[in-house]
Design a protein around this nucleic acid. Structure first.
Lengths: 272, 272
DNA sequence: CATTGACCCTCCCCTTAGGTCAGGCTGTAT
DNA sequence: ATACAGCCTGACCTAAGGGGAGGGTCAATG
């Protein structure tokens, strides 16, 4: 029988933490004196507490941990650990990406002396976009689903003996061009005009090229929207992005390139 | 002049976020209608908002960001970015370590079928520890300060022409053996008995070897304390750990070894 | 001109994993 | 008997917003 103080020292957690774990039912003392309210722990609970600490270090929330321990099935725990490992790998990769972005930002700053200089140099121009013959898949989705839906398109291409012309892109219909979840159409260009889902008619577009990882794509959208506003144009249709240089070219995220097209029309002079 | 809704879509942040940034003074609209309370943003503020998003991605808190932007000195920002990069590198390394620990845990689980099996196999035994002739440095400190204080000891050794015998360790006087901050004495074994700060007399100790990174040292302490309790012994002095295999041997964290000694005495039979 | 629907406002409570007092018991040693 | 260490509960705090209630505003339509 250990008091909270003793137990907290052995496990190296604060008394407050033990109070909290008691409250949320994660680690309940074996005995609580009904008069004084004093908590007493068993020395076997040290092991439990250490496991909790370990799972916390693995990135589980206390709620996850409680559920895992209450379930008591080792296979469930094993599966959860495997999933968590995947998640940690993803987080690590994202952290690496952030570091690379930050490095690029620093280099750019040293070169240009401009703190916004990571890519303020978006060259924006109005051009007539070419016609594009594509097959397409339109859904509510987020960037994370791109892989799945692109696979679907490529599968269809294989089945129907279509020839890709190298173009891949996405159209944002929600005027939020939100990469997390919105009404997005993925497109893949093909050579066979007659078998295409549609032909995207070449329109007048404000366009620019974004260099770097997709996490900073919103910079390019921001720059474009501001430019359109300031140069007397107005949106006129769903914007889309074409992936010109990607990981499939064996490139690192900082070397990827994405060209963004915003269909626009000239605003009447009166409005300008 | 953009309304919150427009601004939020362009920058891809929620209206709630914009309200919040306004409230904390991070990004204040250029105009707020005094009657309706409507917020209006300038298209130049898009750039500002994107910079904020970028800094957030680099891991700065909103408070840090506000201070950095208010200061407006690019050199300060540059320095902060450099520091942040260091911090991110550290976080990445820690994440890698967690992943390695988790992998080891999974392997151990597969091997032993015991979910606590990452290292439950602490072989604990009572032994008479050897005498140790050491120089020592005792302070309130945490693990993070070990490097500094060890450097001090090695410097002294060089100045006084002392010969290290390869032993390095730490004594925990606070009976909390808290690695974050407590009354810790670092020791380095030397050959010259006459010039030593002290000789640690070999006592009866419960001892075990912890294999793996220091983050899981508390497991070993927990196991030892439980064992002592259950086997009719009682603490009798400050526990210490000796670093037998470390990074200085060119090893990865999961191969490090630390031997932990707990001075003990047999409890009278009546108490058992 | 009135209404509809989209858009906007403030205010309040909720989230994680506890930390930090304040005020008041309890247990043990002297 | 008293001192002091240890323990209790309860209230309020953190960061970065999310969710919803209840109500006002804007622009276009009938």
């Amino acid at each position: 029988m250990l008091t909270v103080g003793e137990f907290s020292k052995i496990c190296q957690v604060s008394i407050k933490t033990l109070h909290y774990y008691d409250k949320i039912g994660l680690l309940v003392p074996i005995k609580v004196d009904p008069f004084s309210g004093y908590r007493y722990y068993d020395s076997h609970q040290v092991e439990q507490m250490l496991l909790i600490g370990r799972l916390k270090r693995y990135g589980f929330s206390l709620d996850d941990i409680r559920i895992l321990l209450e379930c008591g099935d080792d296979r469930v725990l094993f599966a959860a650990l495997c999933r968590q490992k995947e998640k940690l790998e993803l987080q690590k990769r994202d952290k690496e990406l952030v570091i690379r972005e930050l490095s690029a930002h620093l280099q750019n700053f040293e070169r240009t002396g401009d703190i916004m200089g990571y890519q303020k140099d978006y060259k924006i121009a109005v051009e007539k976009a070419p016609d594009r013959t594509v097959i397409a898949s339109r859904q509510m989705m987020g960037v994370k689903d791109f892989g799945t839906y692109y696979s679907g398109l490529y599968e269809r291409m294989a089945k129907d003996h279509l020839t890709p012309d190298g173009l891949r892109g996405a159209v944002y219909y929600d005027d939020e061009f939100n990469h997390e979840s919105s009404d997005i159409e993925l497109i893949v260009g093909i050579c066979e005009k007659d078998k295409a889902d549609k032909t995207m008619e070449g329109r007048l577009c404000a366009a620019t090229i974004h260099k770097g990882p997709y996490s900073s794509l919103s910079d390019a959208y921001g720059a474009l929207v501001a430019w359109i506003e300031e140069n007397g144009y107005a949106w006129d249709g769903a914007p889309y992005e074409i992936y010109t240089k990607t990981q499939f070219d064996g490139l690192a995220p900082e070397d990827w390139e994405t060209k963004i097209f915003f269909p626009v029309k000239k605003r009447p002079a009166a409005e300008v």
